[in-house]
């Protein structure tokens, strides 16, 4: 059970991200929360592909068949990271536009009618 510390770290990261999304009112802080949640998911994917005592799946030619961690979760994590960067850029540019339009980043001051 103590060896499940990586999974606990994943759970902690996801909980921190969800807390930020639910309780913070600043849009920049919510974007940071989404990024933390994304880090948790990436760490979970990497963790799933690790074999105990393994090395990175890169052949050097002089080692005689070492135990290698699985390459497919790492490749999909690479995909996930690049998509995360793209989504982060899009979110931040939308936040900049929201700030220009409303003059505030507080979520409850954005509606105009009901607050």
């Amino acid at each position: 059970m103590i060896a499940n510390i990586p999974y606990l770290t994943v759970a902690g990261l996801i909980i921190i991200g969800l807390y930020t999304l639910l309780f913070k009112k600043n849009l920049i802080k919510m974007v940071i929360g989404i990024t933390i949640l994304q880090s948790g998911v990436n760490l979970f994917l990497i963790t799933l592909g690790y074999r105990m005592g393994s090395v990175a799946p890169i052949f050097t030619g002089n080692a005689d068949n070492p135990v290698m961690s699985y390459p497919v979760p790492q490749a999909l994590t690479l995909t996930s990271i690049v998509i995360g960067v793209a989504v982060l850029a899009l979110m931040l540019s939308l936040v900049i536009h929201i700030y220009r339009h409303h003059g505030s980043l507080h979520v409850s001051k954005l509606g105009g009618d009901d607050q």
């Binding site: 499940n4 999974y7 606990l8 994943v10 759970a11 909980i15 690790y50 005592g53």
Partner: peptide
């Protein structure tokens, strides 16, 4: 949080995919 913590504790052991 409770769901995530319990599933993290009872997942298959780390390092054995």
């Amino acid at each position: 949080a409770v769901f995530l913590m319990f599933s993290a504790l009872f997942m298959h052991p780390f390092g054995e995919p």
